[in-house]
Amino acid sequence: MNGCVHAARTATIDWFGDVLAGWNRFWFAPTDPATLCLVRILGGAMLFYTHLVWSRDLLAFFGPNAWLSRDLLVQRHEGTYFWTVFRHLDAPSAIWGFHLFALAVFFCLMIGAFTRVSSVLAFLLMLTYLHRVPTALFGLDQINTIIAMYLMIGPAGARYSFDRWWKKRRGRIEADDHAPIWSTSANVALRLMQIHMCVMYFFAATRKLLGASWWDGSAMWLAFGNLEYQSIPMHWLAEWPMLIVVLSHVTIAWELSYAALIWPKMTRGVMLIGAVLLHLGIAIFLGMATFGLAMIIGNLAFLPSRFTRGLLERRPPGSGTRGEFRQ
C-alpha cells in the first residue's frame, strides 16, 4: 500500500515538474528576435499607412466638429476608461501637429529607429486615435492593436533596423550581422502574439457557428455579393453555388482548427498557407486590403526565426562566430 502511495506521489511530482519545465521552455527560452523584427517592419508599415490615410480627411474624424461629435464621444466615454488626446485639441494646427508627430513615430517604428521608445509611443498613439473614432473602426484596428501591443515587449529593433545600423556604425557591436542574438523577451512577445492570434480565430469561428448561413454554406455569398464590400465584380460567383458552399465550410474549418493545428511542425506550414490564401482573398475581393495584409502580418509570428533569417539574410543563419544576449 505504501509503495502505491509513494509511486503515485512520485508520479504526481514528476508530472508537475514536467508541466513547469514545459511552461519555462515555452515562455522563457531565449530566441533570436528575427521574426519579431520582421513583424515590426511590416506591422510598423501598416500602422504608418493606416494613420497616413487619416490625413486625407483628418479634421472630419478628429476635429472638434467631426462625424462623431465631441459631445457624443464624451457621453460614450463617460464611466469608461477610454481616453483620447483629441478630446483636448481644438485648433486645426494643433491636430495636424499632433498627427505629424504620430506619423513620425510610426515611421520610426517601421525602420527600427529608437525602437524601444518608438514602439511604446506607437502603441499609445494608436490607442488615442482609436478611442476618438469608435464608429469608424473595423477588424484592421483590432489586429493593429495586437501587433503594436506585443512589439513593445521584445527587442523589435535588434535586427534589420536603423538602431542596429547605428550601433554598428558607432562600433558598439561587431559588423558581423549573422551572429545569433538571444532574447527571452523576444520569445515572450512572439508567444503572446501567437496565442492572441489563436484566441482571435477561435472566437471568429465559434461566433460564426451561431449563424445559419455558415451551416447552410450561403455565408460567402452574403459577403461576396455585398456590393459595398466588393473591390472587383463577384456576381459571377452566383453561377457556382457549390463553390460558395465549399468556401464557407473551408473558412469555418480552417478558423476552427487554427488554434490546434498551427502549433505542430507538421501542420503549421499548411495552416500558414491557408492564412495567406484566406486573407489575400479578403484583401483582393472584399476591398479590405489593409485588414487582409495585417492578418497575414500577425500570422508571421509563427515563422521560426531561423526561417526568417534564411529568408532575409544572404548568409545562412547561425554562421556567426558568437552570439549576443539580450533580455
Binding site: 545569433p180 527571452t184 531561423r306
Partner: peptide, 13 residues
C-alpha cells in the same frame, strides 16, 4: 525551442 541555432547557449536566463 526548436528553431534556435545549434551553437547557442540555450539555458533559461
Amino acid at each position: 525551442i526548436e528553431d534556435a541555432a545549434t551553437d547557442a547557449p540555450l539555458a533559461i536566463r
